[in-house]
Design a protein around this nucleic acid. Structure first.
Lengths: 139, 139
DNA sequence: CGTTTCGTTTACGTTCGCGTCAAGCATTGA
DNA sequence: TCAATGCTTGACGCGAACGTAAACGAAACG
């Protein structure tokens, strides 16, 4: 056999290594697997997470920060998947991704607006605070 | 009395008008009131939503789209509130808003990244699709 | 006058995204 | 060999954000 010493199964991670790397719990990773968001290799009873799983998890966590549900994220992940989809399936996925892109661009516009507004309110807040301070000083 | 004809309580809306305008259910509005996100006037038993409630609801719905929890949103709303807060309270609100702003700016960067990546995948998807089409044509 | 039409409260139900045991196998080190 | 450690599979629990059904009050309309 060409491989010795622990087989060095290249580039896979145990569940604990995953948890430490991404700051999630084992429960979360198993939950995502149950929801078909991740597909770790099963070596005997244990899970081994590949490069692909890591990439997917990154996208999952990002999606969550954008307020997407796990189901929405799952559908998006299919797009990033070098899968063996046939014509109609591929077309459907493509369609879906276009919509998500539109969603995200709308969301960005809103986000810009919201940031702008919040900046204004913060400026107003600073005024209030400094006004209060000078009033305090006057006593 | 200076007012006749239905009192035209200027600029308030019934719960139904609110629902139609913002595409939410009555339950949702009552729920938000219970959580102290909205404060409609009570005329007898009924609720009347003011301009202020409408502005707040708009911010609530926006916040939700950004993935904020109702509690986080409630705290942010205090900032937009021409409230009678005292020094320490105002300072706390200000502090919190700064953090949220930072959150949103980080989210914006991530969003840009995500949009960029999704665009790339879409381009890749188009290739696949056109490849499939020419293959079909060849048969 | 009765009966729809709104609105209300109360309260239990539901879905999502995990947390938290309990009980069991499996490797590992003393 | 034996206990500790790590990972596993259920299974139940939980907070958030509402849905939904029951039972009632008030106003509006023919």
């Amino acid at each position: 056999m060409t491989r010795n010493r622990k087989m060095t199964e290249d580039n896979v991670m145990t569940i604990r290594e995953m948890c430490d790397t991404f700051e999630v719990t084992p429960r979360t990773l198993r939950f995502y697997e149950a929801k078909e968001l991740l597909f770790p290799i099963r070596q005997g009873t244990k899970r081994l997470f590949t490069r692909r799983d890591r990439a997917r998890l990154k996208l999952i966590l990002r999606g969550k920060r954008f307020g997407f549900s796990l189901e929405e994220i799952r559908q998006l992940l299919d797009l990033y998947n070098p899968s063996d989809e046939q014509g109609t399936q591929l077309a459907k996925t493509y369609e879906l991704a276009c919509q998500r892109l539109a969603d995200m661009e709308r969301q960005r516009e809103e986000l810009d607006e919201a940031i702008e507004e919040l900046r204004n309110r913060l400026a107003w807040g600073e005024e209030q605070l400094s006004a209060l301070k000078s009033k305090e000083a006057a006593e």
